[in-house]
């Protein structure tokens, strides 16, 4: 572990200024991921700016019926919020399917979005990883990759990376079209969450489109108005990252799909919005056959690795089952 300085600022602008002045610094939220990575030597900030007291710990209503979630709201509190449970069950379910009770008490909304991959090559500084050490190669590509990506990977070249994004919450927020509010050295901006996380492309070292010094202050979730759910498949009943997860919302009118949201977790470097499946479904009958065809349309682009081909039929089954369950809920 590298020695580091620890600072607190009086307000968000002060924190942003502190970090903007230090290219090797990092914000500290709940620390449930960053501190582990520092112990392993994977993250080596020379400055930690503690922002836990700076952003809101409140969930407040937005005029349209949506919610604004303060960046410091603990995962446990967010999952327990009555409005979240009633209006966005997909979000509450996603939160409760992640980590453990202790971690959810500590982890923040902003920090959850910025979790780094649990790829075993990323977390071991003695092994090749283009995300941690650009140009060193991707150890997982031909190595142990049972739980790695099947969509949107970079399979060769200096940007090769097959890591997955570990967050459950982010998958739900992607399905919900959330907007991430940030304050940075150049002022405030709102980032549609689908533009926050990025695919590895030619630079897997960058997980997100955040600029250095930008601090997440809140996450806005617009009103949804129809049924949603989160379903996560994992190798043990608790405290395991998703093999595949599905965040789904569905509105059916007269047996026809009027609106649908689908996002997949555990399949890509970013929460994966299943736009092809959504497009294939709109206006189609809400049947198992149509759901399967939509899943196939999305997964046609899958490029599974040697040992994770099971994620394709697993994702298909989860999509179909989640949508069928939502049809049941609507009845």
């Amino acid at each position: 572990m590298r020695e580091f300085r620890y600072e607190r600022a009086d307000d968000v602008d002060g924190a942003v200024a502190l970090l903007a002045a230090d290219p090797d610094g990092a914000f500290l939220g709940g620390g449930t991921n960053l501190v582990d990575l520092m112990k392993l030597g994977v993250a080596t900030p020379d400055l930690l700016v503690d922002v836990r007291q700076l952003t809101s710990v409140e969930v407040t209503g937005l005029p349209d019926g949506g919610l604004r979630i303060g960046a410091a709201v603990p995962n446990a509190d967010l999952a327990a919020d009555r409005r979240v449970r009633e209006r966005f069950p997909v979000l509450a379910q996603a939160l409760l399917s992640g980590a453990s009770g202790q971690l959810r008490n500590r982890a923040t909304t902003g920090g959850n979005l910025l979790q780094r991959t649990r790829c075993g090559y990323f977390t071991d500084v003695t092994k090749p990883c283009n995300k941690r050490a650009p140009g060193s190669g991707c150890g997982a590509l031909e190595g142990v990759h049972r739980n790695h990506a099947i969509l949107g990977q970079t399979l060769d070249g200096p940007g090769a990376c097959v890591a997955t994004h570990p967050s459950d919450m982010a998958v739900a927020l992607v399905a919900l079209d959330a907007v991430v509010q940030v304050v940075g050295p150049d002022g405030e901006r709102g980032i549609p969450i689908r533009e926050l996380h990025r695919l590895p492309d030619d630079d897997p070292s960058r997980d997100t489109t955040l600029r250095h010094g930008e601090l997440i202050t809140a996450v806005d979730v617009p009103v949804l108005g129809f049924a949603s759910r989160y379903r996560k498949a994992r190798e043990r009943a608790s405290f395991a990252f998703a093999l595949v997860s599905v965040a789904a919302a569905l509105r059916v009118e007269d047996g026809v799909v009027a609106d649908v949201r689908l996002a997949l977790g555990g399949v890509a470097h970013a929460p994966w919005r299943a736009t092809a499946a959504e497009a294939a479904l709109r206006g189609q009958p809400a049947t198992e056959e149509a759901f399967g065809a939509a899943a196939d349309a999305e997964l046609a682009a899958a490029t599974p690795l040697r040992d994770n081909g099971f994620k394709v039929p697993l994702a298909r089954n989860l999509v179909v089952r989640s949508l069928l369950d939502l049809v049941e809920v609507a009845r």
């Binding site: 498949a233 190798e235 093999l243 994770n308 081909g309 099971f310 394709v312 039929p313 697993l314």
Partner: peptide, 12 residues
């Protein structure tokens, strides 16, 4: 594991 379920079903 779940992966072996799909393997045995011939789906991988």
């Amino acid at each position: 594991t779940p992966g072996k379920y799909f393997r045995e079903l011939g789906l991988t």
